[in-house]
């Protein structure tokens, strides 16, 4: 069962990769990278059960957190054109 799960995750990884390759807009790529991060989390979890070492599950959870923060940072960059520490005053008044 975990073999099927791993194969499925790898297949959806390649689908997300296709979207990241093709674009066409920046948002497609951001979403593709975010999806890819989620697939990595799932792959680590599935691999942990596949190799009978489910202790990796902690690591997968921390990956999910990093992925979330990374996506927020990327989107913040697209909104403000920088990462906040030199934000001009007019950009903050959304």
């Amino acid at each position: 069962m975990f073999v099927a799960a791993t194969v499925g995750v790898l297949a959806s990884m390649s689908l997300a990769m296709t979207r990241a390759l093709m674009g066409p807009t920046v948002y497609d790529r951001v979403l593709a990278v975010n999806t890819f991060g989620t697939k990595t989390v799932l792959l680590i979890s599935a691999l942990g059960f596949l190799t009978e070492r489910p202790e990796f599950l902690d690591l997968a959870i921390v990956y999910a957190l990093i992925n979330f923060i990374g996506t927020i940072a990327v989107l913040k960059f697209f909104e403000y054109r920088d990462l906040g520490w030199t934000r001009p005053p007019e950009a903050g008044s959304e």
């Binding site: 990769m17 920046v26 790529r29 990278v33 890819f36 991060g37 990595t40 990796f56 690591l59």
Partner: peptide, 21 residues
Amino acid sequence: LFAAVMMAGIYSLLSAGLFVV
């Protein structure tokens, strides 16, 4: 270059997966 940066993120995630393996 935006797309290249996004792909570099995917590259890192893939290598992380390889390291886990």
